[in-house]
């Protein structure tokens, strides 16, 4: 498959300080088709992404990570993408792992989930516990056990892109994708990926504190009931 059919989608909210570096790293890893969705940032995320020469789209108001990823996926489909990978805009993911995700898709998997298990010892204990709790809730509500249900680094085949139909706008999106994998019986696998906990990305992670975690669980339950 030609590389021009592979797209990287980056949802970004107030990532003006790092987005250029993230884009540059992805390019150095050999991937040119990058779509950045500025999710109603207050800073210059959109301008920075545009200056970098990527496809930059802007949500006029903040709608959440799930909504931004969905916009990015729609945009990539419009550009003719056949494989789409998503990764966070705060630089916590290593673009060097993208190649492994694509390889798995080429092997015949429809969804590849990046599990932040490489150098797990670097992950703060509190975050590991929160991730485990999220995995348990995701398994109980959605029927599939995965080792990192909240990872933003994932890759989708064309078939998966056509079948996965998400409605969540916020962080519960990541778990909803797991539900869609189960519902559509998609062939999936997990591969270990590196996560880089810089002072900056940890600061961003703080925004997903205990209360936001509870909100995400509530939304996951609500999505099933409603």
């Amino acid at each position: 498959m030609p590389m021009d059919k592979f797209y990287v989608v980056i949802p970004a909210f107030n990532e003006g300080r790092v987005i250029k570096k993230v884009i540059s790293e992805i390019r150095k890893s050999g991937f040119e088709n990058i779509i950045v969705i500025d999710d109603g940032s207050d800073d210059d995320t959109f301008d920075q992404a545009k200056e970098s020469g990527t496809v930059a789209l802007r949500h006029k108001i903040n709608r959440g990570k799930g909504a931004a990823v969905k916009t990015g996926i729609e945009a990539a489909k419009m550009e003719g993408a056949e494989i789409i990978a998503t990764m966070d805009g705060d630089g916590q993911h290593n673009p060097g792992d993208l190649g492994n995700l694509i390889e798995k898709i080429k092997e015949g998997y429809e969804v590849v989930l990046g599990a932040r298990t490489k150098k797990r010892e670097l992950m703060p204990l509190r975050k590991r516990m929160a991730n485990f709790a999220a995995n348990v809730f995701t398994w109980y509500l959605n029927g599939i056990w995965v080792t990192d249900s909240q990872s933003g680094m994932r890759a989708y085949s064309k078939k998966a892109l056509d079948l996965v139909d998400t409605k969540s706008s916020r962080y519960e999106y990541d778990s909803e994708v797991i539900r869609e994998i189960y519902r559509n019986k998609l062939k999936f696998t997990e591969i270990p990926i590196e996560v880089r906990y810089t002072e900056y990305s940890m600061g961003k992670t703080e925004k997903q504190g205990f209360l936001n975690g509870l909100k995400t669980v509530y939304k996951m339950i609500w999505n099933i009931l409603s």
Binding site: G40, L57, R63, M78, E79, S169
Partner: peptide
């Protein structure tokens, strides 16, 4: 009420998404 709020939130996301994608259509 919660169902109505969820529906409005979802519709709002759709409107914001369509507006963002218009820029892509202008580019291509």
């Amino acid at each position: 009420l919660l169902s109505a709020i969820e529906r409005v939130e979802s519709q709002l996301s759709d409107v914001v998404r369509n507006d963002a994608l218009k820029n892509l259509e202008t580019r291509n």
